[in-house]
Structures are given as structure tokens and as C-alpha cells.
């Protein structure tokens, strides 16, 4: 197994470290898991493009020694679709967050899945708009306090993984940052999957989400992700907990492959 030092030296832009992320932010763990998955698969970094939208999660691609596009808010999947369709040989990874992916980018999200274009999408769900200081997001659990739900959120939240499943994504997994090895394996599977792969990561925002909800201890935060999740096998016994694991893995025709075969039929 590659050490953090080797991982750092091989994949990270040294000038950008240490990262701008807050203490206890899970985004770095997701970056770590992603790079480990890429390393295990021995992927060519020069053939990869990391796309992101706007938000804390979307800063991750700035740290990787590869081509990257930091798009407009919510539009990462639209830009990534253009990159993948423009050059299907590229391996395109998208970092997005709950607000970026399911709030402002919700329409792009379901349509990129509907087309089944070959992107690996890693959505870091921290239940809040962290970069703007902790507003209610589309995944904020009911009754949670945020700067725009000061009396507790009343909105029903989205379940990102279920949304991806319903829209037709062939590969869907959900883990938390407290399950780094499983997360790394899920990302690995997602990268290998030819179609649209969706990996949701439940990740803490201690500064903007947990602090406002009166949880100010890193250990309590860490334990929350262990205690409030359950692997899908045992999900029925614990209906109050969030199911984690590989939620879907099927074969489905990918868009650029379909386009390629269309072109071979009509090309003069």
C-alpha cells in the first residue's frame, strides 16, 4: 500500500498544501481515497481530467497534478459531459457537493445520469453550504439548525444516492469518511465502471454544520457517522439509520459508446 508521503509526492501540487480546508473537514479524506483508488488502478494522470463546480468539495481538483476544470456553480456535470463527449478517451472525475450537485445543479445531475455518460462523480454530502458559511442545503436533515434555518429546517431533504438510483445510474455507492477503505474500493469500482458512477460520501463540516448544531467535539462528530449509518445488508433491521454500501451495480450502454456506434452507421 502506498504511503501518504508517496501519495502526496506523486499526485499533489506541493505549492497548494496544506489545503485551505478546515480542521475536521472530510474533503481531504475523500481526496486521499480517490488518489489511492487511482494509484491502485495505475491510471495515467495525464489522461485524466478532474472537474468540479463551486463549493468546498469543488476545491479538491486544485490539489491534484492533473488537468482540472473548476466550473460555475452547479454546472460541473454539464462541463464534464462536454469534456467526455469531446474526447471519450479521457477519464473524467467530478467532485461535487450536496448544494452544487442537488441544489443548483439538480437538473444537470439527473440528465447526466439519464444519458449515462461515462463520468465518475464523487458527491461529498456535508448537509450544508459550507463555503458561504452554513446555509440550509437540499440534504440538510429536518430540524437541523443552519444560518437560513435558525429555528430548525422544515424542508424534506434529498437522498442523493436514491436520487441517482431512480434516475438510472448504473453504479451507485454511499460511504462515509469514517469508512475510508470501503470508500476507496467504491471509487475504484466507480472508476472502472464504463457508465455514470455515483459515489456519495457523507462527510462532516464541523465549522458550518456541526458547530451550529451544538456538536463541537471532533470525536462526537466522527462517531455520528459510525453510529448513524448501517451497511445495506442490515438496513432493514435499522430503519432509522442511513444505509451505506454498494447500492447499485449494473451494466448499461454508455453515451459516448452509443454515439460512436451511431457515427459508424451514418458516417459517409
Amino acid at each position: 500500500m502506498i504511503s501518504n508521503k508517496e501519495l502526496h509526492d506523486k499526485y499533489i501540487k506541493k505549492a497548494m498544501m496544506p489545503s485551505i480546508l478546515c480542521a475536521g473537514c472530510g474533503n481531504g479524506t475523500v481526496l486521499n481515497a480517490t488518489l489511492r483508488a487511482i494509484d491502485v488502478l495505475d491510471m495515467d494522470l495525464d489522461n485524466m481530467v478532474f472537474v468540479s463546480g463551486i463549493g468546498c468539495s469543488s476545491r479538491l481538483n486544485a490539489y491534484i497534478n492533473a488537468d482540472a476544470l473548476h466550473a460555475t456553480h452547479g454546472r460541473a456535470l454539464a462541463f464534464a459531459t462536454g469534456i467526455k463527449a469531446g474526447n471519450p478517451k479521457l477519464d473524467v472525475v467530478v467532485f461535487t457537493g450536496d448544494g452544487d450537485c442537488a441544489g443548483i445543479g439538480g437538473n444537470h445531475f439527473i440528465h447526466a445520469i439519464r444519458r449515462n455518460i461515462g463520468l465518475t462523480v464523487i458527491a461529498i454530502n456535508n448537509y450544508t453550504y459550507g463555503m458561504t458559511g452554513g446555509q440550509m442545503s437540499p440534504t440538510t436533515p429536518q430540524k437541523s439548525i443552519s444560518t437560513t434555518s435558525p429555528y430548525g429546517a422544515i424542508d424534506h431533504p434529498f437522498d442523493l444516492a436514491e436520487l441517482a438510483k431512480a434516475a438510472g445510474a448504473p453504479y451507485v455507492a454511499r460511504w462515509t469518511i469514517a469508512h475510508p477503505l470501503q470508500l476507496q474500493r467504491a471509487i475504484k469500482k466507480g472508476l472502472k465502471n464504463n457508465g455514470f458512477s455515483f459515489i456519495e460520501v457523507l462527510s462532516p463540516c464541523p465549522t458550518s454544520f456541526w458547530r451550529r448544531n451544538k456538536v463541537r467535539n471532533f470525536e462526537t462528530i466522527y462517531n455520528w457517522y459510525k453510529e448513524n449509518t448501517v451497511t445495506i445488508k442490515k438496513a432493514k433491521e435499522h430503519p432509522d439509520k442511513i444505509p451505506i454500501g454498494e447500492l447499485k451495480n449494473i451494466d448499461k450502454d454508455e453515451w459516448t459508446d452509443l454515439w460512436k456506434s451511431l457515427v459508424s452507421e451514418v458516417r459517409i
Partner: peptide
């Protein structure tokens, strides 16, 4: 498709411009 190019219908105009910007960075 007759010349081996790519046409993609997007979900709205925001995505359309996003997609052509992305594709432009692949050299198209």
C-alpha cells in the same frame, strides 16, 4: 455524425454552453 463530429442535446442552455466550453478544452 456524418463527418465524425459530436452532437449532444443538453437539458437547457446553461448546460449547452457548459458542454461546449468543456469540449473546447479537449481541442474541439
Amino acid at each position: 455524425p456524418k463527418i465524425g463530429g459530436t452532437y449532444i442535446q443538453m437539458e437547457d442552455e446553461i448546460a449547452s454552453l457548459g458542454a461546449i466550453i468543456g469540449a473546447s478544452w479537449t481541442g474541439k
